[in-house]
């Protein structure tokens, strides 16, 4: 039996019929047509499919589209404002935080969650923050540098008031 699902992705409302077994990542790529989110391992390990769902980073290969009915989703395509890249995108560019680029959308979405929770992470905290994301080019050094750079840019943009970690309950 097919189910009708509706969700907001990057501010745009999408509505489709899906089979219950449709995974969110396939819905995003094939039905919403947003192919910035990648499928890597398809086994909840590599993090290439990381998107934000209702404010939390999730591996969209391990969520059914029907579970995201009514959710607010942000994908890598939702970060730039016009031609203005998000500070994380700019920092990955500036610091050579990518080689083949396959893991990059997931890395950036995981890093976004990390910096929202901890705007001034140490190197160790950055490495733990992206522990759910694998780079097979093994370019972690520059990925970590890129996240450090983005953290500084975002802190400067936020002015002097750097917010405390948000997602503490």
């Amino acid at each position: 039996m097919r189910h009708r699902v509706a969700m907001t992705i990057n501010g745009t409302q999408y509505e489709h019929e899906v089979e219950p077994r449709t995974l969110l990542v396939y819905y995003i790529r094939e039905q919403a047509g947003l192919t910035g989110t990648h499928i890597g391992c398809d086994t909840s390990s590599c993090g290439a499919c990381t998107v934000e769902m209702d404010g939390h980073s999730v591996k969209s290969c391990t969520v059914f589209a029907v579970q995201a009915d009514g959710a607010q989703i942000t994908t890598i395509e939702g970060l730039a404002v016009g031609s203005q890249l998000h500070p994380l995108q700019q920092a990955f560019w500036d610091e050579h935080g990518l080689q083949c680029g396959y893991c990059t959308p997931g890395m950036i979405m995981a890093a976004k969650q990390l910096l929202e929770r901890n705007p001034k992470p140490t190197e160790q905290e950055i490495r733990l923050g992206i522990e759910g994301n694998l780079c097979r080019c093994t370019g972690y050094q520059n990925i970590v540098k890129a996240i450090e750079t983005a953290a500084r840019t975002m802190a400067a943009q936020a002015g002097k008031e750097v917010k405390a970690p948000a997602a503490v309950s």
């Binding site: 999730v58 990390l114 522990e131 759910g132």
Partner: peptide
């Protein structure tokens, strides 16, 4: 447990 994304769900 797992990683941050797993712990979110």
């Amino acid at each position: 447990i797992g990683d941050p994304q797993v712990r979110n769900r």
